[in-house]
Simulated scan of single mutants.
Amino acid sequence: MTPPFLQWSESAITFNQTDHLDSVLHPGRYLLVVDSIVSLKRLTKVLMDGGSSLNIIYAKTLDEMGGDRTCLHPTRAPFHGIVPGKQAMPLGQIDLPITFRDQFNYRAETLTFMVVGFLGTFHAILGYPCYAKFMAIPNYTYLKLKMSGPHGVITVGTSF
Rank of each mutant, 00 (worst) to 15 (best):
residue 1 M to I: 11
residue 6 L to A: 13
residue 8 W to Q: 05
residue 11 S to K: 10
residue 14 T to H: 11
residue 14 T to E: 15
residue 14 T to K: 12
residue 16 N to F: 04
residue 17 Q to G: 05
residue 18 T to S: 15
residue 19 D to S: 02
residue 20 H to I: 12
residue 21 L to E: 14
residue 21 L to P: 06
residue 22 D to G: 13
residue 24 V to N: 14
residue 24 V to F: 03
residue 25 L to D: 09
residue 26 H to R: 09
residue 27 P to Q: 08
residue 27 P to Y: 04
residue 29 R to T: 09
residue 35 D to W: 01
residue 35 D to Q: 10
residue 37 I to M: 10
residue 38 V to A: 00
residue 46 V to H: 02
residue 47 L to I: 02
residue 48 M to T: 04
residue 48 M to I: 15
residue 48 M to P: 00
residue 48 M to S: 02
residue 50 G to W: 00
residue 54 L to Y: 05
residue 56 I to Y: 02
residue 57 I to W: 04
residue 57 I to Y: 02
residue 58 Y to E: 13
residue 61 T to E: 06
residue 62 L to K: 01
residue 64 E to Y: 06
residue 64 E to R: 13
residue 65 M to V: 04
residue 66 G to M: 10
residue 68 D to I: 05
residue 68 D to V: 07
residue 69 R to H: 11
residue 69 R to Y: 03
residue 70 T to I: 00
residue 70 T to K: 15
residue 71 C to A: 14
residue 73 H to Q: 13
residue 75 T to K: 00
residue 78 P to W: 04
residue 79 F to I: 13
residue 80 H to Q: 14
residue 83 V to L: 12
residue 84 P to I: 08
residue 84 P to V: 10
residue 85 G to R: 02
residue 86 K to F: 12
residue 86 K to A: 12
residue 87 Q to F: 07
residue 90 P to R: 06
residue 91 L to P: 07
residue 91 L to V: 09
residue 92 G to N: 08
residue 93 Q to A: 05
residue 95 D to F: 03
residue 96 L to K: 06
residue 99 T to N: 03
residue 100 F to S: 08
residue 101 R to S: 15
residue 106 Y to Q: 14
residue 106 Y to N: 15
residue 111 L to C: 08
residue 116 V to E: 03
residue 118 F to Q: 12
residue 119 L to E: 15
residue 120 G to L: 13
residue 121 T to W: 07
residue 122 F to D: 03
residue 123 H to D: 15
residue 124 A to L: 02
residue 125 I to C: 00
residue 131 Y to I: 13
residue 132 A to W: 05
residue 134 F to V: 09
residue 140 Y to W: 07
residue 141 T to M: 05
residue 147 M to D: 00
residue 149 G to W: 06
residue 154 I to E: 06
residue 158 T to M: 12
residue 160 F to S: 12
